[in-house]
Design a protein around this nucleic acid. Structure first.
Length: 433
RNA sequence: GACCCCUUCGUUCAGCGGUUAGGACUCCAGGUUUUCAUCCUGGCAACACGGGUUCGAGUCCCGUAGGGGUCGCCA
């Protein structure tokens, strides 16, 4: 039997982090078993399932690198099949019509539960049971003639040949109903695996208020798709050893549903941030440069062709791609802002401007304005003046970058070039001195 | 309320009857670095509680407590 898993979201315009983790686990399981990963778009909510919402969904999958193996199945195309199946259940005596008075539009079609105790083996939670008395019949076609989630979901899973239904914990109770449906329809029952919830920092399930529960937010905050994939894969699952930063191949190789924990997990943004830094540092320099260029271009800044040295300086110290632009802007424009606190603390201090005057003299005398010579000159000055690095360096940095901290100063100055450095120091003295 | 599920450092993941209960993130201390970040070293920190079973329990069983899910003509 070839494994077929699926991701079956309803497109709402926002892709929830918990949903996405379900997608990741489905994808990993399909890849691990050499099976197929399918997409079904449950777009029956016409108002919310706009083309933009669907686009958002597909982009999210793409961003996380979750490739699908067959054409997506759109649920709106399946309504006739759903209704036909309900009709079939009616004929076979598995369903009946009744006016429950809900919509006030007459009779709906109700599925009759088999009236026996049921149990199934959940690949994550183990064997789950439910006595017949606790399972009520349920509506499969509304009195307005539209099919309900349960029948649509089951029928489409049958249509797509899904062998493993891997979904959120909140569907555990539905599973008994769904299994009864499979059986009544004479279809093979797939295996089920229910993933524990992801909870927020307060230990509560993510609600609509938790803004950072949508994957688009992580993207715009500067996280990498690979980071989120890796982090989410590790939320509730581990390879069984101490590996954490793993390649896709390693995760695919090691993934197993039985190793998934059955208790809820909380996202730790700090660890996610750490992991993102790890991923960025591990990037090929040219990939990081391309990323940086993209960010800068989006911010309307042209780094020119010769910015590779700047990117090389930034890569090891970047944790979020969104941090790149503010950190490097001063390299590419004279229009950078001075950090007020830094100015107050380090620049408007006794001797700071005298120091800068001296630095101007020293730099003017440098034939070769390169990292090594600048470094050497600065060291000599610090020694001769007896001022100490903590007094000499900050004013220079603030003068050329406006920032209290940043990349190594000597290479920064070398990249900026002698003329720019001198001009900026002079300008700073004029402005604040 | 009924039914079901869950419970190891602050967080996360190990541990699947005998361990000084481990790794990672965070945090703290020290070192490297002219700053910050990185990096290195060290440290703090957990088996929810109560009963069993057993020579021996974080590991098995039963309770209790706490948390969560589900009880729609939503999905």
């Amino acid at each position: 039997m070839n494994t077929r898993t699926r991701f079956a979201p309803s497109p709402t315009g926002h892709v929830h982090i918990g949903n996405m983790r379900a997608a990741i686990f489905n994808w990993l399981y399909a890849r691990h078993t050499g099976g197929k990963f399918l997409l079904r778009v449950e777009d029956t909510d016409i108002e919310r399932s706009t083309p933009e919402a669907i686009k958002t969904l597909l982009e999210a999958l793409d961003w996380l690198g979750l490739d699908i193996d067959e054409e997506p199945l759109y649920q709106t195309t399946r309504m006739e099949a759903h209704l036909a199946a309900a009709e079939q259940l009616l004929v076979a005596g598995h369903a009946y019509r009744e006016d429950k008075g809900g919509l006030g539009q007459g009779e709906c079609i109700i599925f009759k539960m088999p009236g026996i105790d049921m149990e199934f083996h959940d690949e994550i939670k183990g064997t789950l049971r439910k006595p017949a008395a606790d399972m009520a019949d349920f509506v499969i076609v509304r009195s307005n003639g539209t099919p309900v989630f349960h029948i649509a979901n089951v029928l489409d899973d049958i249509e797509q040949g899904v062998t493993h239904v891997i979904r959120g914990d909140d569907h555990v109770e539905n599973t008994f109903r769904h299994i009864a449906l499979y059986q009544a329809l004479g279809a093979p029952v797939p295996k089920f695996a229910h993933l524990p919830m992801i909870i927020n920092a307060q230990g509560k399930p993510y609600s609509k208020r938790d803004g950072d529960a949508f994957i688009g937010d992580f993207q715009s905050k500067g996280f990498l798709g690979d980071t989120l994939f890796n982090y989410l894969a590790l939320l509730g699952w581990s390879p069984g050893d101490d590996r954490e930063i793993m390649t896709r191949e390693e995760m695919i190789e090691a993934f197993d549903l039985s190793a998934v924990r059955s208790s809820p997990a909380q996202m730790d943004l700090r660890k996610l941030l750490w992991m993102n830094g790890e991923y960025i540092r591990a990037m090929k320099p040219e990939d990081f440069a391309a990323l940086a260029r993209k960010e800068l271009s989006a911010a309307g800044i042209d780094p020119g062709l010769d910015a590779e040295a700047v990117f090389a300086l930034m890569q090891p110290r970047t944790k979020l791609t969104a941090d790149i632009v503010p950190a490097v802007t001063f390299f590419f424009t004279e229009d950078y802002e001075y950090d007020e606190k830094a100015v107050q603390k380090k620049l408007l201090k006794d001797g700071a401007f005298q120091t800068l005057e001296k630095i101007i003299e020293i730099f003017q005398g440098l034939e070769n304005f390169a990292t090594e010579t600048i470094d050497k000159a600065l060291h000599e000055f610090v020694e001769q003046s007896g001022l100490g690095f903590g007094v000499v360096m900050p004013p220079i940095r603030i003068a050329v970058s406006g920032q209290p901290s940043g990349p190594d100063l000597a290479p920064t100055l070398a990249i900026l070039g002698k003329d720019t450095v001198l001009a900026r120091i002079r300008r700073t003295i004029e402005q604040f001195g």
